[in-house]
Amino acid sequence: MTDHARDLDAVREATDRLLGATGTMDDVAVAEPSRLPGWSRGHVLAHLSRNADALVNVLQGRPMYANSETRDAEIERDAPRALAEHLADLRGSGAAFLAAAEAPADWSRTITMRNGVTDSASRVPFRRWAEVELHHVDLGVGYELEDLPEEFVLRENDFLAERFAGHREVVPTTAVTEDGRLWTTGGGAEGAPVTVRGTAPDILGWLCGRRDGSALSVEGGSLPALPPL
């Protein structure tokens, strides 16, 4: 069962790490490319701030974004800002999210995310945790997948394996770590089952599209190409 209160504590800790790392940068570094194609670090920071706003909308029963064009335009608008503005926005929007998520509510209710995806309200804090952790890695400032909390890595692997389960473009796939942790996914595409072996962070990198899978070993075929998230 999802413990949303515990996940909110994890969001606070992850946000503090992000703010600490971002605070060591300067305006030049913010304008430099991130690890996400076509995005500067400023784009990543702007996205994180606007994602916090969007999750407040979700928790309060409003559409996550007015539309995809508005979402993209807001990120482009905010990306070129100075570091001080990004930091203030990250703190303010992050605090607003925490306040909304701490308000008494029915955490078993169904909420609607972007593109009509539905989920339990209790999973919203984890979704914010994932945004903060993975985009911290995307900044390219020395925080790597191996630095992520183990609990987060394992749970995000659970989440992504579930997301691709039964996908018509992915053959039946089992991912296994050396210590025996296992995830199954795919299964909607014709083809022999494959087994992928590696560390939990390397498996996460492959599942979330942040690594090419070259550190993984594959048995029974080639490494499946996963659709974009």
Rank of each mutant, 00 (worst) to 15 (best):
M113D: 02
A192P: 04
W206C: 11
G188F: 09
A96F: 02
I203F: 05
R210T: 10
I75R: 00
N115A: 13
V11D: 03
G209S: 10
V218N: 01
P80A: 04
V28E: 13
H135T: 08
V132G: 06
T2S: 14
H43D: 13
A21Y: 00
H47W: 08
D9K: 13
V176Q: 10
E151I: 03
R71D: 01
T185K: 03
P227M: 03
L98F: 03
L204N: 13
L18W: 09
C208G: 07
V171A: 08
L8P: 09
V141N: 08
A200M: 06
P104C: 05
T22Q: 02
P104G: 05
A99V: 10
A161L: 11
L8M: 14
P63T: 06
R123P: 00
R109W: 06
D72P: 02
G92A: 15
W39C: 13
R17A: 12
P224K: 08
P149S: 06
W39G: 14
V141M: 11
N67Y: 05
W39M: 11
A31N: 04
G142A: 13
R114M: 13
P104V: 09
L160D: 02
M64K: 08
R71M: 09
A73S: 11
T22P: 06
R127K: 12
V132A: 13
R81H: 11
L160K: 07
R6Y: 13
T15Q: 14
H47I: 01
G94S: 08
N115C: 03
T110I: 15
L83H: 01
R155F: 00
P227E: 03
Y65W: 10
L229A: 06
S217D: 08
L19E: 01
H86Y: 02
L55G: 02
S108E: 14
V218I: 11
A165G: 07
L204K: 12
L8Q: 07
G140V: 08
L134Y: 04
L98Y: 04
M25C: 15
R91I: 03
S108P: 02
N115M: 09
P172W: 00
V171M: 08
R91S: 09
A79N: 02
L87E: 08
W206K: 10
G94A: 07
D179S: 14
V58L: 11
P201M: 10
A175M: 11
V58G: 02
R91T: 12
A66F: 03
D212P: 09
G209I: 04
G140I: 08
L36I: 15
A103D: 05
A161D: 04
L223E: 07
R127C: 07
V124R: 00
E151R: 11
E74A: 04
R128D: 10
A52E: 01
P227S: 05
R77H: 02
G116D: 05
A5L: 14
G20S: 13
S222H: 07
A21G: 15
T24S: 13
